[in-house]
Design a protein around this nucleic acid. Sequence first.
DNA 1: GAGGGAGTTGAATCTGACT
DNA 2: GAGTCAGATTCAACTCCCT
Lengths: 384, 384
Amino acid sequence: MGALTKIRKADTLAKAPVVKAPKAKAPLDLPLGKILSGDCIEAMRSLPDNSVDLVFADPPYNLQLGGDLNRPDGSQVDAVTDEWDRFDSFATYDKFTREWLVEAKRVLKPDGALWVIGSYHNIYRVGAILQDIGFWILNDIVWRKSNPMPNFRGTRFTNAHETLLWASTGEKARYHFNYTAMKTLNDELQMRSDWVLPICNGGERLKKDGHKVHPTQKPEALLYRVLLATTEKGDVVLDPFFGTGTTGAVAKRLGRNWIGCEREDGYRGAALERIESALPLDESALKTMQSRKSAPRVAFGSLVEAGFIAPGTQLFDKKRRFSATVRADGSLESGTEKGSIHGVGKNLQGAPSCNGWTYWHLEHEGDIKPLDALRQTYLLAIED
Amino acid sequence: MGALTKIRKADTLAKAPVVKAPKAKAPLDLPLGKILSGDCIEAMRSLPDNSVDLVFADPPYNLQLGGDLNRPDGSQVDAVTDEWDRFDSFATYDKFTREWLVEAKRVLKPDGALWVIGSYHNIYRVGAILQDIGFWILNDIVWRKSNPMPNFRGTRFTNAHETLLWASTGEKARYHFNYTAMKTLNDELQMRSDWVLPICNGGERLKKDGHKVHPTQKPEALLYRVLLATTEKGDVVLDPFFGTGTTGAVAKRLGRNWIGCEREDGYRGAALERIESALPLDESALKTMQSRKSAPRVAFGSLVEAGFIAPGTQLFDKKRRFSATVRADGSLESGTEKGSIHGVGKNLQGAPSCNGWTYWHLEHEGDIKPLDALRQTYLLAIED
DNA sequence: GAGGGAGTTGAATCTGACT
DNA sequence: GAGTCAGATTCAACTCCCT
C-alpha cells in the first residue's frame, strides 16, 4: 500500500501548477515521437538550437574486452562484442564523445539538462569532457544493482554498479529538479545519490526468438526516476543512443515528448513497436518501479572493520565449551578450525548449522553478551 | 563437512611454504614510518623508482579552493568564478593531478597499485588522467555513506557517496587482490564495488578545542578494507596527501609499512601523535583466510605414487554420466580418451575446461567423495 | 495451484606457472 | 616471449518442469 500511495502522490505533483513562467512551446518542426536514423551526431545536427529540455544518453561504454569468459560451471558469458562498442583508442573514443556532447549542448535549452550513464570504462572520460565543454555537474548518481553479474574469476570486486552524471548547461544555468516528487518517492526522505534498482530482465527484457534484442537494455525504473526528477509534463527529451527505446517508452508513460537517434534498423523497429504498446501512466505495472527496502544484511567483517570488535577478541559459546579468536578479515580461529562465525560454530559442535550471531558471545565489562547485541548497536550506528 | 574440509585446507595452506618468489625487501633508505614535509610532488621525487607496493591518495577535491592548490612554480591559484577562468582552473588542476600521478607511477613497483578517492568535482578528471598515463582501472568503488549530510536547500539529490578508483600500473600488469579475505569479510559473498560505511565521527574523529582537526578525515574502516584487500603484511604504503594520518594508523594496525607526505605542520603533528597511539594487531589476529590459489600444487600422479589411490580405481562424475580408470602414471582412461584428470573430464563433457579435482569422484566405504578430498588428506600427510 | 528443484543469465576491461 | 596446460571461480532473479 505504501507504494501505491507514493506513486499517486508523485502523479499529483507532476500535474501540480508549475511555479516558474510557462515555457516556450516546442518548435513545430521538431520530430517529436520519431527515431532519427544514421549517425547520432549527424542526426542531432538536424535539430535546431535551444530546442530540447533534456538529453538522456547511454553511449557505448568502450568495454575493451579480452578473450572469452566462462562461468565456473563451464557455460560461456554472452559478452558485449557488438561493432558499435569498438573504438581504436581512448583518443578515438574521446573525439566521438566530444562531438556528440557538443551537439547535445547546442540543442539543449539554456535551462535544460544532460544525463549520461556509463561504467568505469568510459565514464571518467565522459565526465572530464563534459566539464571541459562547459556542462556543470549537479550530481553523480550511482545505480547500485541488486542483482549484478558476479566476478567469475575471483580477480576483482564484483562490478555491482553503474554511474550516471546529471549536469546543467553551465555553472550559472538554471535547471529543474522535482525535489518533492523525489522525496515522496523515497518515503519522505530526501532522495540520495545512490539508487538501488534491479537490472532489466524478466518480462521487461525485450526478446526475439528467445534471444535478447539489445545487449544493454536499461530498466524502465531508472528512466522513470530520471524523467520524474528532472522534467515536467510536455517537456522534450532527446536520447541520442535510443537502442530499444526505454527512454521513449517511459517518456510516453509519463506524458513527456521524445526524440530518438539510432543507427541500427533492428533496434529502431523494436523500439517503435515497444513504445506503441506502452500505456500512458495510470495502472501500468508501477510496482516494478519501487526498490524493495529490506533489512540491511550485516556482515560480521563490517563490525571488525568498523572497530566494533577488535581482531584478537576472544569469543565463546554460552556454556563456555568452545572459544575462538577473531581475525582481521572477520573470520574466526579455534584450534584447527577457521572460517566464518557460522561455519566455525557449526563445525565445533558437529551441528548441521549454526547461527553465529546468537551462538558466539563476548565479555564486556563483566557482562556476557551475544554478538547479535553488537550487531544491533552497529545497525543503529549506520542507520540513515 | 564440505566446510570443514575447506577450512582445514586453508589452514594447511596458510602454513605451507609460499610458492612464489619472496618479494624484494624494501630498500633500506626508504623513509618508512615518516611523514615527508613540503609539496607532495617534490617529496615523492625524493623516493626511488619501483619502491612502494601501494599508493593511497586523497587529493584536494574542490577546484574552486585556490588556497588548496599551488601551481608548480609555487604561486597560488586564485579562486575563480567566471567561465574563462574556470577552464584555466580545470587546466591547472589537471596539471597538478598529472604531476603527482606520474610520480606515483614511478615510485610504484610494477605489481603495485593505486587507490584515489574523490567526489564528482574532481574524480572524472583524475580518472581520465590516470588512464592517459597508463594506469589500468581495476574497479571503481562507491563508498556509500550511511549518514551523509543532507542537501539543505532541496536543490539536488543528497550527495551520499564518494568514489574510489583502484588501478594497476598497466593493462598487463599484475596486482594483488586478497579475494578470499574480502569474501570472508563479507559473510561468504563476493565483496561488491559498493561499500556501505559510516562517515568518520564520534571518538574516531580527531578534535582539538572542540573543532575537527581536519575537514575531510576518512574513516579507518575504509582504509582497513583497502589495505586488507590489496596489500600483504610488510608491504609499503605511500599516502601523498597524508592529512591526519588515517592511512598510517590503519597500516600500523595491519602490520603494513607506511610513508606519508603532508605540507601542513599541524596535520603532521596530529598524525604522528595519532599513529603513535595506534595498536598493532598481534600475529594471530592478523591472519586472514588464504586463497586456494596460493596452494602448493599437487600432481594427481603423486597420490597414485604415494598409494593414496590405486591404479585401476574407477572414477566417475557426480551424475555418473562418465567413468574412467586410473592408470599407473596418474593418467585416466575412458573409452578412447586418455590423459590428465582435467583433460579427460574436459573432453568427455566437451567443455572448455574442467577441474578434475572436483569433477571426478570415487566410492569409499559407500560414500562418494571428490578427488579433492583425497588431495586434502595428502596435503595434511606431507605437511612438516 | 502452490511449491520445489534444476537450469539459465546479466555492459566483464576476469589466471598464472612453467616450458 | 610465446605457447601450453593445470585448475580456480558465481549471485540474484527469472524460467520451466515436476510433484
